Each structure stands twice: as structure tokens, then as C-alpha cells.
Amino acid sequence: MSTPNPRFPATRYATLRVVENSETATHWCHMHADLAATPGRACFKPQLINDILKFQRNLSDRLRRAQHDGQQGLQHVVLASDCDAFNLGGDLEYFCDAIRRQDRPALLAYARECVNGVHAFHSGMDVGVHSIALVQGDALGGGFEAALSCHTIVAEEGVSMGLPEVLFDLFPGMGAYSFLCKRIPPHQAERLMLAGDLYSSEQLHAMGLVDVLVPRGQGVQAVEQVIRDNRRIPHARAAMHRVRAMAQPITLDEMQAITDVWVDTALQLGSKSLRTMERLVRAQYRRHGEGDAERVQLP
């Protein structure tokens, strides 16, 4: 897929597999690397969020130093997955526990870290990086938000994506509305968020939410083609990022304010909503290994 950069050995992370290609200035970030050895859930567990933030900070610092030394060139970051799901969304098990304890600080800290991560992909990590989401498996809830945060979404056919939070009387609060409204009209974004339906990658491509749609197994090649196309026009692409940020700004303050609303809404959920979340948690465990499925007890 890509080759390591000999000048900058990739840092090792518990939940990420990071691979760098110096020739194309590309940095691949594969989520759920830990699931290969340990059954679990392909969701945004706190460890995965922490690893992504650490990856972003490390890469941003390195690229900023390189720019200071006069090294130029359009860089690409590809967010992908090492399992058959891109990402199934927020850590519902964590949510249930925090809501039952009415632990607002814990829920708010989690939500704000998520927002910091997706906003960094959206902003090019403040160093002009072009972010690409490679969706080869289902992207639900926060997983779909993470894909939407990227500048380009490449998806393979037959993949499901959507925002099912309304099933437990919540809304997607880590960037969905802001990112959707960059691609589709606000009223359409609201309908999508409140319906809770799942859509195929083919449907989302027709709606304008997926940029590049390819047959199964051709996602990596499609990403590489996007990168080649961008490298032919690096100055125009970099300028387009700046223009987009001026014309359609999504600020971190805006996203933090929205996620505050999400936290306050989550803390109002009752037992019916929590039971729905817990059933989804059990389904996630069964999907990628049943080791801990039975410890999620329904009241």
C-alpha cells in the first residue's frame, strides 16, 4: 500500500498503524490496528482518540519544522481502517456509564477530544495537509463524522454510512451538522440527522457526500490517484483549502459549542435510550469478537 519514510520513522501507537511514503509525502493512519490481536469494538474508544490526537500533534510538529527549514510540498494524510469497518462511532459503553453516573465532566472531556481530532483533519492540522478518508467498511455515527471532516472522501461500493444516534434519542454532535452543511443544504442535513437511516456509498455519492466511488477492493488505488492528481496542482490545491476556510469557515469554537449541547442532551437520556445503546454495544462486540459481549448487562 505504502512504504515507510526512512527519514522519519513512524511512531508506534497502541490502536493505530501508521505508514509513511516519503516519495508521495503521504501519511497513512489505519485505525483499529489493535483488533487484529485482541477482539473488541471498532469504535472511538478513548485510547483510539488519544492515539489519533497524538499522531496529529506529532505529524503537525514535524511538518511545521520542515516548512521552517524551507521544505515545501503538499502533504496528504489518509484516514483508513485495519478491520472490516471504517468506524462504528462513539464509545457507547463509555457514554452509558457516564450518563448513568451523570458525570458531565467525563462526557464533555471525551466529546471535546473527539471534536479536536475531527477539526484537525478538517483544518489540515494547521499545516496545509490534504486529508482523505478511505472508507472500505461501514462508517456510522462518529465514524461518518470523521470521514466527513476530511477534504476528500473515497468510498468503495456496498459500504453503509449514516448517523443512527436518533435511535436512542440523541443527535450526532461531533461535527456532523457543520461538515454536512459544507456539502449539502442545511435542511437536507437536518433530515439526514433526524431520520437515523443508513445509506449506501452509492446513494451518498449521488447526494454529493462521497467524492470518489470505486468498486470493492479498489479504494487504495483510488486514493493514490487522488494524491497524484493533487501533486500535479499543489499550489492550486493548497490555495483552495485557504479559500474554502475563508468562504465557509468551521471554527473549533463553533464545534465545541455544539458538542456542549450534545453533552447536555445526552445527560437527559432515560433508561429506554440507555438500553438501546447497550444493545448496540453488544452487537459491536459480537461483530469483532465476542470476548466482552456478555459483560454488557441489560437492566
Rank of each mutant, 00 (worst) to 15 (best):
S2N: 09
T3S: 14
P6R: 09
P9S: 11
A10F: 02
A10M: 07
A10Q: 14
T11I: 07
V18G: 02
E20Q: 14
E20W: 08
S22E: 05
E23W: 06
C29M: 15
C29R: 15
M31W: 12
A33D: 15
D34A: 15
A36L: 14
A37Y: 12
T38I: 11
R41A: 03
F44C: 01
K45D: 03
I52Q: 03
L53R: 05
K54W: 00
Q56M: 02
Q56L: 07
Q56I: 02
R57D: 01
R57H: 06
D61T: 05
Q67R: 15
D69E: 15
D69A: 10
G70A: 13
Q72H: 15
Q75M: 07
Q75N: 13
A80R: 08
A80Q: 11
D82A: 15
C83H: 12
D84Q: 13
A85I: 07
A85N: 07
F86N: 10
L88S: 04
D91A: 04
D91T: 06
L92W: 07
C96Q: 07
C96G: 12
A98M: 05
R100C: 04
R104F: 04
A106D: 10
L107H: 02
L107T: 04
N116I: 01
G117L: 09
A120Y: 01
F121T: 01
H122V: 00
S123D: 09
V127C: 11
G128T: 02
V135L: 14
Q136A: 08
G137W: 06
D138L: 00
E145I: 00
A147D: 06
L148G: 05
S149R: 10
H151R: 13
H151A: 09
T152P: 03
T152I: 10
V154T: 08
V154D: 03
G158K: 03
S160H: 07
S160F: 08
M161W: 02
V166G: 10
L167W: 13
D169M: 14
Y177R: 15
S178N: 15
L180K: 10
L180M: 14
C181V: 12
C181D: 08
R183W: 11
P185A: 08
R191V: 00
A195E: 12
Y199R: 13
S200R: 14
H205C: 00
A206R: 15
G208N: 03
G208F: 05
V210Q: 11
L213M: 04
P215Y: 04
R231V: 01
R237W: 04
A245K: 14
P249Y: 02
P249I: 02
Q256N: 09
I258R: 15
V261I: 06
D264P: 03
G270Y: 13
G270C: 05
L274K: 13
M277Y: 03
M277Q: 09
Y285N: 12
R287P: 00
G289K: 10
E290L: 00
E294K: 09
E294P: 00
E294R: 08
V296I: 14
Q297R: 11
P299A: 14
